[in-house]
Design a protein around this nucleic acid. Structure first.
Length: 308
DNA sequence: ATCCCGAAGC
DNA sequence: GCTTCAGGAT
């Protein structure tokens, strides 16, 4: 029967993307990690919580925190009612604890301004505290099923390699990268969601920054970067990374670690505070910055506690 | 050492 | 655009 249509069917060239999508979707079904917020098992709010926790943090570390967090505070209204001290303690050692306070402030605004229902438009989402371009786009795609080109560091790396044949560079995504991400995004909403998730997952599991496992990659057949011999592999993307040992971030972490997990109103006295770090100038600066961030309260005598 | 499903402040 | 925000895994 194919012969019947050979003459009449115009020779429409098959675009590359539909084939890439088919391969990617099949790979996704077989290899997607079974994260608890995937596959329709949570609410849009649960998706948002997972995205905020995942900012600069590995999935494997996020999963237990997310599970416990959602058990205690299943929706925005519940989180809005918690004390800051409870929230900071529950954030534990996930890192970047300002995210915890922003998430709670976000919960309070969602509760008050949106009747405990996460808004489903980009502008409202990105206006929420702790929600930037990536998180707003991810929520629109993963929670609301909307057709949005999600751009994170993994997706940038994968798409740049496959469709442009080069490493993505550091810094903000360029207009060219955003344009390309839009152009290769499948037209259908459902397909676009799987595409976003699958490209991100390939970036996390296969298309690694320095040692990509190209032989496992569903896109190896159409990857310009692979075809060109992985030119400049691992170059050009990395921002200069700040160290950790001896920095303010380590000291801040020590201070909060000393405060977490105690009964409400528990106070660390001045003497104990001074023993947390030898360099008192740096210690004082970190205490001040934590106070500025609303992560601790400095009491008149120099003792500290988590904020109520 | 580098990376991790970035955001916000400057 | 550049820097600062934790902390763990590899």
């Amino acid at each position: 029967m194919s012969e019947t249509f050979t003459r009449t069917a115009p020779p429409v060239p098959e675009p590359a993307e539909p084939e890439a999508y088919r391969l990617l979707a099949a790979w996704w079904r077989a290899n997607a990690r079974d994260l608890p917020w995937r596959f329709g098992r949570t609410t849009p709010w649960g998706i948002l919580v997972s995205e905020v926790m995942s900012q600069q943090t590995q999935m494997s570390r996020v999963v237990p925190y997310w599970t416990e967090w959602m058990a205690v505070w299943p929706d925005a209204a519940a989180l809005a009612r918690a004390s800051s001290a409870e929230v900071i303690t529950a954030w534990g050692r996930l890192g970047y604890p300002r995210r915890a306070l922003r998430l709670q402030e976000c919960a309070r605004r969602v509760t008050q301004e949106y009747d405990d229902r996460l808004p489903d438009d980009y502008q409202s989402l990105v206006d929420l505290p702790g929600v930037g371009d990536y998180t707003a786009s991810a929520v629109l795609s993963f929670a609301f099923g909307r057709r949005v080109a999600v751009i994170d560091t993994n997706i940038r790396r994968v798409l740049s390699r496959v469709f442009l044949g080069v490493e993505s560079h550091g810094g903000t995504a360029t207009p060219a990268e955003r344009k390309m991400a839009q152009e290769v995004l499948p037209v259908g909403e459902e397909e676009s969601v799987i595409w976003n998730q699958a490209v991100m997952e390939v970036g996390a599991l296969v298309c690694l920054p320095k040692a990509p496992r190209c032989e496992q990659c569903p896109l190896r057949g159409s990857c310009l970067f692979l075809k060109d011999g992985l030119p400049g592999l691992g170059q050009g993307r990395t921002r200069p990374r700040q160290g950790f040992k001896g920095t303010d971030r380590q000291v801040r972490g020590l201070i909060l670690a000393a405060l977490r997990g105690h009964p409400a109103g528990w106070v660390l006295d001045r003497g104990k505070v001074e023993g947390l770090w030898a360099d008192q100038a740096r210690l004082g600066a970190c205490l001040a910055s934590l106070d500025d961030d609303g992560l601790i309260e400095i009491l008149p005598g120099g003792s500290i506690r988590l904020p109520i």
